[in-house]
Design a protein around this nucleic acid. Structure first.
Lengths: 209, 209, 209, 209
DNA sequence: TATGAATGAGTGTTCATTCAT
DNA sequence: GATGAATGAACACTCATTCAT
């Protein structure tokens, strides 16, 4: 009898179950990050976690559910970190800088998570639900960014440019960070973040005559 | 009985073989772009090409070889286009603009190719060789870009910044283009390209005065 | 630590155990009848009974044992009912009528039981023992019926015919009843029973001149 | 690339493919008849046919398709045989006798087919489509039988009785035949058929005063 | 007594690859 | 050159059964 997750009103998950789920999610993240999404079979994930493949299905009724959980957990963790940073920025440029630096910092500290999420987002057909969710999330982030730019323009702090195109460029640069840090592990993360922040600051702010 | 590809010294490919290979590569690109890498089985590719699955293996001894060929052909095609644009740029800023606009233009005109390549790059384990090659290629592109920036800095046209970080940001923005054009088909491509070019121009050039 | 069923000489079953077994058997009957034998997993049966799957194995050491118990309990219940009807029939024709009407009546009142038993009888390999038992039971019923016919023939009440073939036909008609009542719920059960009884009465009795 | 069965307009099946399909259907019938539906896995069917399990999926795109083909082929074969017998019956009683004897004869000659079909009809959930089809077929047969009885009643040849109930009884007796012949292989088939025919003749015809 | 976490064998199905034709 | 029948390994998933608690 599977735990029949999350649906039932009273159905809380036991401590041990929560622990196993966490363990499996971790193993899934690492497996996807290291071996690639397509090779992240239950067999491999289970081997890494030191459990039997059947146990994964026992805790996650479908593969989709596990993949979704990976997405959700990474996203929630990042949100928590970024939220702290975003508060109390004095200007739009400062807010952008806070976002960029926070994101890069998070990437540096959570490379496997970011790689795994990227794999899933770009990945196969059997993660359709998770991919759709990620795309919606991404679209939302883009919209937020663009809105921020627009406000900055209306208040005269930022120059005139296409908020959307700039948002795409910024997010793309952020999303490229995990791969870059993976490819060049010696990168000074804070420098890297500052460079990005400065570049985009110059790109968006009204040129001081 | 197979054509024994590429290895043999004298082994030129016949005209008809070259044609078949091209047909298969095209079908592969379209299938990967439309159905996703994971669903792009030989059966599907062959159906699209109107041939039997066995014939693919006849022309490409391993799956890896076909995927590799997809990469190579797209890359070659893009190089050809970009090379024309890059020549005769009067300044580093102009060269950057030419690159950005050329790349975006190419993306707009070759969506399936770009989507397929992105799928492969992010994709499965049986594309390891192709992925490695793409990564090497990408590294090379980054190095070229960074070198260009460095020269611009030495000549005083560009401000001081990390050439590497800027190169990553620029390339990331470019690589995000196909997805963006796919997600927002109404985007004015030339505007979009100009916006990116301007943004990065502001980011790199020595601030006037 | 299991109850070590039925084997031990002294091993009586406690009251509570008997109750659990009954509850599980009922849940099994309903699950098999509604979801089909193949889908009647321990998980489903346990969910219906509001217990854990492990508890089923605790009370029935093998799946086979549970299935067997289903058979036995249904059979015993039917026997009890039929026995009452059979007594005191004045003629062989009357006895046949009593049997037919009793059986049909029982079917109408115990659809799930009959459906479940039919599912098992026609069903899977892991019910082999139960199926064998049912077949033996069936054979016995056929023998009883045939013997009754033979006696009726010897006493001159019934015409000459193959007792065995007639027994098969009668039993087949009876066994078809649950499905028929399920397919046509509006059937008037008593009419239906009377029709069958009359048909077979005409088939067996010595034609009145 | 699977043969993509039956749908395409021009898509004829090759000779060799037709042969394989037939071989697989035969193996499926025998496996179901001997081991039971639930144990008739592709692995077992393939072993019997001396082929690999994958080949079954190659020729039948889903399991359901194979099961359906079993049903259809048995049904078609029986129809062919029965059709010859049914023609030219001088009375309703004679038509009934022809049907009964034809059916029994067919059963005797095709025990595995009949057992397999019975297994599927009574069987698991993953044969839903085939079971539904069989049930529709059965219902049709019942309707035909009942209609025949009704006509016979209207013409005065048959006594008054419920055509439906009688149809059910007759069909049930027929369907019980394979099991009976299997249980008692020494049965004289023609005698058995004649007994059934006579029994139902007496049951339906207007008693000769 | 009862739970539910865990296992391992088994399922249908997919697919790159082989090979006789 | 080309076909398509055939294989075998891999996949997610199901489930009776075991066992520590």
């Amino acid at each position: 009898m599977q735990p029949e997750n999350e649906s039932a009103g009273q159905g809380r998950r036991s401590f041990i179950e929560e622990a196993r789920r966490g363990q499996i999610v971790r193993a899934a993240i690492e497996t996807i990050a290291e071996d690639g999404y397509a090779k992240a079979s239950f067999a491999r994930i289970a081997r890494r976690a030191g459990i039997s493949p059947g146990l994964i299905t026992y805790h996650f009724s479908r593969r989709e559910e596990l993949i979704m959980e990976v997405m959700l957990s990474v996203h929630a963790s990042m949100e928590r970190v970024l939220a702290r940073r975003a508060e109390g920025a004095a200007s739009y440029a400062a807010a952008l800088r806070a976002l960029v630096e926070g994101f890069v910092r998070y990437c540096a500290d959570h490379v496997p998570e970011m790689v795994a999420v990227a794999q899933i987002a770009a990945g196969a057909g059997d993660a359709a639900k998770a991919r759709a969710w990620a795309e919606r999330q991404r679209e939302e982030t883009l919209a937020d960014l663009a809105e921020m730019f627009q406000e900055g323009q209306q208040e005269g702090e930022l120059r005139e440019f296409s908020p959307r195109a700039m948002a795409v460029a910024v997010l793309a640069a952020l999303e490229a960070t995990p791969a870059e840090l993976l490819a060049r592990p010696d990168t000074d993360v804070d420098d890297y973040a500052a460079e990005l922040a400065t570049a985009f600051e110059l790109a968006v702010r009204r040129p001081t005559r």
